[in-house]
């Protein structure tokens, strides 16, 4: 991952908090003193069962906020993988919600990170925080935002929220981050095969 700029596409179905997840990353980047941009899906990208948004975190001023070749795709459901898998930059990363997407080999030139985000969220008692599990996991890989940045940015993202709500969100960040630390993710080259089931 480049240390200067990180281009991320986040995708899932409506209700998974995709746009908010993007906002979490952008707000965190802003708090960490980076240049950031966030745009919801537009044009032909709006077709076909996914809600998605693009986020750029950058050391330098952002020229185009459009993400045509993402460094990372965070996919929360199957159609998102189908839609964005092939767009990921060689050497980039596909981070996916393995609770809803079964383990397959997608491409052999990208890093694959599987996080059972929905299950982790269920364990925490709120399936709606699966998106934030992914945010925690992402901070493990990012060179521009840290786990501490995420934690610091959270209150600003949820003004007026109850303490319990903040706590469960923080727990989601932590679980996501720790899951990666436990190295339960795949990394490296895999036998290339067609992603089945889509």
């Amino acid at each position: 991952m480049s240390s200067k700029v990180e281009r991320i596409i986040l995708a899932g179905f409506g209700g998974q908090g995709i746009l908010f997840l993007g906002k979490v990353l952008a707000e965190t980047g802003m708090h960490a003193g980076k240049h950031v941009s966030w745009i919801p899906s537009y044009g032909p990208e709006m077709r076909g069962g996914t809600a998605n948004c693009s986020v750029i975190l950058s050391e330098n001023e952002i020229a185009s906020p459009m993400v045509t070749v993402p460094d990372t795709v965070i996919a929360m459901n199957r159609p998102s993988v189908a839609k964005f898998n092939l767009k990921i930059k060689a050497g980039g990363m596909l981070m996916y919600n393995s609770s809803l997407i079964e383990r397959q080999e997608f491409r052999d030139d990208i890093r694959l990170v599987e996080i059972p985000a929905s299950e982790i969220a269920e364990e925490l008692g709120n399936p709606r925080v699966a998106n934030l599990v992914m945010a925690g996991a992402y901070s493990k890989f990012s060179k521009l935002i840290t786990f501490e940045d995420l934690v610091a940015a959270l209150p600003g993202l949820m003004p007026g929220s109850k303490k319990e709500m903040l706590e469960i969100n923080l727990a989601a960040f932590k679980k996501g981050f720790d899951f990666v630390e436990e190295k339960k993710y795949m990394f490296g080259r895999y036998v290339y095969s067609v992603f089945k089931g889509i």
Binding site: H35, V36, S37, W38, P40, Y42, P65
Partner: peptide, 10 residues
């Protein structure tokens, strides 16, 4: 336009 209207930046 729709992009500028919907995008978020600091």
């Amino acid at each position: 336009d729709g992009v500028l209207g919907q995008m978020m930046e600091p």
